[in-house]
């Protein structure tokens, strides 16, 4: 672990020194912030909140090609493996919640069976976090799900904005390597820097307005009301769109399809794309039977995955409290409210 400071005026030089990396920096678009690899941007804007599409898209892209297949003249099928390019990337401006989300995804794609494609990208990714000064959205509730606006989980570096400079904490070897690309830019910290950083962190924590109380009680509660009509009432205005899950930093469900380019000779590829439990076809069986036939069971699935199944498997929440699903839901389904009502249901 290494702690330094860097002047904001030197920040562009640091980014320029990262020649061997593909650098993603938040860029303002008309729809919000986007992580962009456009090389023009050399600093993190002061009013940056968080990217609409979370950083998961750079590690677990919406489309991943597994292999290509082609029928050869003697009617056999030839497979050609396609692997993600070996190109190291750095993502700047990862909010602590999104960093924790990547850590949660590591659990899913790691463990006893490692997902080759995921890890190939993941290992080449350095996440440079940026502690929150202000909650990026009014629906932030990271404190309630064991996170914080300055959480270091999953990140390689955590930056804290101290006005004219950043407090830089390198958390991993990958992070230290990034600092070593331009060692002259980084200064030793003073006790004052540290003090100021602590103050900024605490202040930020106080600014988070929304809370989900008693989240650890939820697994039992969700089990208890699994078959209740509670879910019908809560989901009555759900539209079955994919916003809440596609833009969730931890949702990782996918679909695998063969796409044929030509039938004779057979030629095509197998790809993995994002999929979501909110679409009716997600659980559709080939018999036509759908075990999750209605919106109620799909809403329940989304919440139960985050607050029940994931806890059983990994003893942590799958929700990181970024609030995207609340802010972006077209019909105002609010995960905090729904879970609070779930907790109080039947009381």
């Amino acid at each position: 672990m290494m702690e330094k400071t860097i002047l904001k005026s030197s920040f562009p030089q640091w980014i320029k020194s990262l020649q061997s990396f593909k650098v993603f920096i938040p860029k303002r678009e008309n729809f919000g912030w986007e992580l962009s690899s456009n090389n023009q941007i050399l600093e993190i804007a002061s009013d940056y909140t968080y990217p609409v599409v979370p950083p998961k898209k750079l590690i677990f892209p919406q489309e991943e090609i597994f292999f290509e297949f082609e029928q050869n003249p003697d009617n056999g099928i030839e497979l050609k493996e396609v692997l993600p390019e070996e190109s190291p990337q750095v993502i700047f401006g990862v909010r602590p919640c999104d960093g924790r989300a990547v850590e949660a995804m590591d659990l899913v794609f790691g463990g006893s069976f490692e997902d080759l494609y995921y890890w190939r990208r993941r290992r080449q990714t350095t996440l440079v976090g940026l502690a929150c000064h202000q909650p990026p959205s009014e629906n932030c509730f990271c404190l309630s799900v064991e996170g914080s606006p300055y959480s270091e989980d999953g990140l390689d570096i955590l930056l804290t904005d101290l006005g004219d400079r950043y407090f830089v904490k390198a958390l991993t070897e990958k992070g230290e390597k990034l600092l070593s690309e331009a060692p002259s830019l980084f200064k030793e910290i003073t006790p004052k820097d540290r003090e100021e950083k602590e103050r900024v962190h605490l202040e930020a924590q106080g600014k988070i307005k929304r809370h989900l109380n008693g989240a650890r009680e939820l697994p039992e509660k969700i089990k208890a009301i699994f078959d209740s009509n509670f879910w019908d009432e809560e989901s009555s205005n759900c539209l079955r769109c994919g916003i809440c899950t596609y833009l969730c930093p931890t949702c990782h469900c996918f679909d695998i399809n063969d796409e044929t380019k030509s039938l004779a000779p057979l030629r095509g590829r197998r790809i993995r794309t994002w999929d979501t439990c909110q679409f009716p076809d997600f659980t559709m069986h080939s018999s036509g039977h759908n075990p999750r036939p209605d919106r109620a069971s799909r809403l329940r699935q989304r919440l139960a995955h985050k607050f029940l199944y994931f806890i059983l498997l990994y003893d942590r929440f799958q929700c990181v409290g970024c609030g995207r699903c609340i802010s972006l839901c077209p019909v105002g389904i609010d995960i905090i409210e729904v879970l609070t009502r779930a907790r109080n249901h039947g009381k």
């Binding site: 539209l239 769109c241 994919g242 916003i243 833009l247 979501t276 559709m284 080939s286 036509g288």
Partner: peptide, 28 residues
Amino acid sequence: LRCYACRSVCPMCYCDECVADSIAYAVT
């Protein structure tokens, strides 16, 4: 992102089976 929110929210998009879906809902 093909989250299909535009289709889901639309008062006119009521087809049981949409060309954009990779499987048929009308399967029985």
